[in-house]
């Protein structure tokens, strides 16, 4: 019922695409990250929490929203959305036609992060899964342990006279990092890209910690020892100079491997991911009960071979999703 086309995942009976990477007439969107929600389509369908983010990123586009669990009929195909636990609003797309069920999971993680909604396993015949961290070397620690490490790092930096800069992708990771830092009860300065997302979400009714905008001309030492959340692209920028001497950390699942962390040339790396780890991927695939699995972006060759050896028929699919910067 779903096919993989040069424009993206397509549903012929429904006449719509899911996360297309080329402009199409109707696009169902799993979440608002730029590799999944691309510019140029005529109509978008997504979760209500994704809608304001889509507007923030794509401008005034035509967006219809659909709540989790609510059903919509598109040309005889029954479409519903289910929480994917990846970022705010992120959803799996379930499509049903003549008794056959497919689920497109987009990006997901199975362990709740307290913000993004708890991942819901959805039974299906065909499951399309990501594999960003589809190797057994990627096994995450509990979020609370990582959060404590981050807060301790910030306090140690302050004691030594440094500001702490946490590099996190502006949509998703940044909200988690900010909520991790909120208990410190200090102003959290955010780069414009992150402040925009945070304000959009707060206006949309989310109970998130507001961030402080950076004064245009701060007094000397005013920002010394402060807490800063910035997108990875801000690393090494002159914008960071305002904060005096800084220590910089990257928050990403890629920090699991020492070499990746060293390559980033930062002072610390915290293993905090918005994607399922190895065990998460395995659990998710099993829970669907799917008899056919399609593995997209990441370690798709390894994960699909592993699943096949475990008796779950799987194949790898080339897509345009996923870049390392976004995690």
């Amino acid at each position: 019922m779903l096919t993989f086309t040069p424009s993206g995942i397509y549903c012929p009976p429904g006449g719509f695409y899911i996360d297309p990477w080329k402009p199409v007439e109707k696009a169902v969107i799993t979440h608002a990250h730029s590799d999944h929600a691309r510019w140029g389509s005529n109509h978008y369908l997504c979760h209500p929490d994704t809608a304001p983010l889509l507007h923030l990123r794509l401008g005034p586009v035509d967006v219809q929203s659909l709540d989790w669990g609510e059903q919509l009929d598109i040309n005889g195909v029954r479409v519903s959305l289910h929480p994917a636990g990846h970022i705010i609003g992120s959803s799996q797309v379930r499509v049903e036609h003549k008794g056959e069920v497919w689920v497109v999971s987009g990006d997901y993680k199975v362990v709740p992060d307290g913000i993004s909604g708890p991942f819901e396993p959805v039974s299906c015949h065909h499951f399309i899964t990501e594999s960003t961290f589809g190797l057994p070397i990627y096994q995450w620690e509990d979020q609370e342990i990582i959060y404590q490490q981050i807060r301790q790092w910030v306090l140690d930096n302050q004691a030594a006279g440094y500001s702490s800069v946490l590099l996190a992708y502006s949509l998703g990771k940044a909200q988690r990092v900010i909520s991790c830092l909120a208990p410190l009860q200090q102003p959290i300065y955010a780069h414009g890209a992150i402040a925009n997302v945070q304000e959009t979400l707060i206006q949309a009714g989310w109970n998130l910690t507001p961030v402080a905008r950076v004064p245009v001309e701060p007094n000397r030492n005013q920002l010394k020892g402060s807490i800063v959340v910035a997108p990875p692209s801000a690393d090494g920028s002159s914008w960071l100079k305002k904060f005096g001497p800084v220590k910089v950390a990257v928050c990403s699942g890629w920090m699991q491997v020492r070499g990746n962390a060293r390559r980033r040339n930062v002072d610390a790396g915290f293993v905090l991911s918005d994607h399922a780890d190895w065990n998460g991927l395995k659990t998710a695939v099993k829970a669907t009960g799917a008899s056919a699995v399609y593995v997209t972006h990441g370690f798709q060759a390894a994960f699909s071979r592993y699943l096949t050896e475990q008796g779950i028929e799987a194949q790898e699919i080339q897509t345009d999703y996923g870049t390392e910067e976004q995690e």
């Binding site: 190797l135 057994p136 070397i137 491997v257 020492r258 070499g259 370690f299 390894a302 592993y306």
Partner: peptide, 11 residues
């Protein structure tokens, strides 16, 4: 799978 992991980690 061990070997795939090893080639990705490099150590």
């Amino acid at each position: 799978l061990f070997e795939e992991s090893y080639h990705t980690v490099g150590d």
